[in-house]
C-alpha cells in the first residue's frame, strides 16, 4: 500500500476512525433516561388517521387533539396481549388526577375488521375504560396507519371453526396534546411506570 495519499500513519487513522465511531455512538444516546417508555420524539410522524368509530361515524386524529393519546393496535378476539395491555392502560389512566384523566385517551384500533364490528369493539373497549375509544376501518386504511408507525399485522390461516390468530404490534404509541409522537410503551412496563410517564408528559405541556 502506497502512503502517497495518506500523510498520517496507520495508527493515527485507526484512532481517528475509533474516535469518529465513538462520537457517532455518543450522539445516539439521548436524555431518554427520564422516561420509562422509549422516547420516540423525532423518530415518527405526528398522529394522523381517518377511521370508523364505534357508532359507524368517521373519526380523524384532529378530533382527538388536545388529549394525550395512547394508540394501540389489536383485535377483540385477542387471547392475551390486547386484554392485558388495555387492562394495564386503563389502570394507569384511572388513578390519574381527575383533570389529567379526562385529558388522556386510549385509542384502540382493531386490525381485524372482518370479525370486529363497531358494536363489538364498542362493548370491548367500554369494558376496560371510559377513557378508551375503539376504531377500525377498511384494510387499506389500517395498513396505511400501521405503516406510518412502522408496524404491521398479519392473519393466520383460519381453523375448522373459522378462528384465526392475528399478529400485531404489542406496543402502545403515546402522542402528546399536539399529536407529536413521544413515547413507545413496551409490553413489559408496569402500570406504575406508565402512569409516571403520563403525568410527566401532561405536566410539560
Amino acid at each position: 500500500m502506497k502512503s502517497r495519499f495518506l500523510p498520517c500513519s496507520h495508527r493515527t487513522i485507526s484512532a481517528m476512525a475509533l474516535l469518529a465511531s465513538l462520537v457517532m455512538l455518543g450522539g445516539c444516546f439521548g436524555d431518554d433516561e427520564n422516561w420509562n417508555g422509549k422516547d420516540i420524539s423525532g423518530l415518527m410522524p405526528e398522529l394522523a388517521f381517518e377511521l370508523t368509530g364505534t357508532s359507524g361515524e368517521t373519526v380523524t386524529a384532529s378530533q382527538t387533539d388536545g388529549n394525550i393519546r395512547l394508540l394501540f393496535f389489536g383485535f377483540t378476539s385477542c387471547p392475551d396481549i390486547c386484554p392485558a395491555t388495555l387492562q394495564k392502560l386503563s389502570r394507569a389512566v384511572t388513578n390519574l388526577p381527575e383533570a389529567l384523566r379526562t385529558d388522556t385517551q386510549i385509542v384502540f384500533v382493531s386490525v381485524d375488521p372482518q370479525r370486529d364490528t363497531p358494536e363489538r369493539i364498542d362493548s370491548y373497549v367500554s369494558f376496560f375504560s371510559d377513557r378508551a375509544i375503539g376504531l377500525t376501518g377498511e384494510e387499506p386504511a389500517l395498513r396505511e396507519l400501521s405503516k406510518r408507525y412502522r408496524t404491521t399485522f398479519g392473519y393466520d390461516e383460519p381453523d375448522a371453526e373459522g378462528n384465526y390468530n392475528v399478529s400485531h404490534s404489542g406496543a402502545v404509541y403515546v402522542f402528546d396534546r399536539e399529536g407529536k409522537a413521544r413515547l413507545l410503551i413496551r409490553p413489559e412496563l408496569s402500570v406504575e411506570e406508565i402512569r409516571t410517564d403520563l403525568v410527566a408528559l401532561a405536566e410539560e405541556s
Binding site: 393496535f73 400501521s146 412502522r150 408496524t151 404491521t152 399485522f153 398479519g154 393466520d156 390468530n165 392475528v166 399478529s167 400485531h168 404490534s169 404489542g170 406496543a171 413507545l184 413496551r186 409490553p187
Partner: peptide, 13 residues
C-alpha cells in the same frame, strides 16, 4: 431484538 415483537411481525411466527 424485541423491536419485531413490539412492532408486529409480517406473519405470526
Amino acid at each position: 431484538y424485541d423491536v419485531y415483537e413490539v412492532c408486529g411481525r409480517a406473519w405470526p411466527m
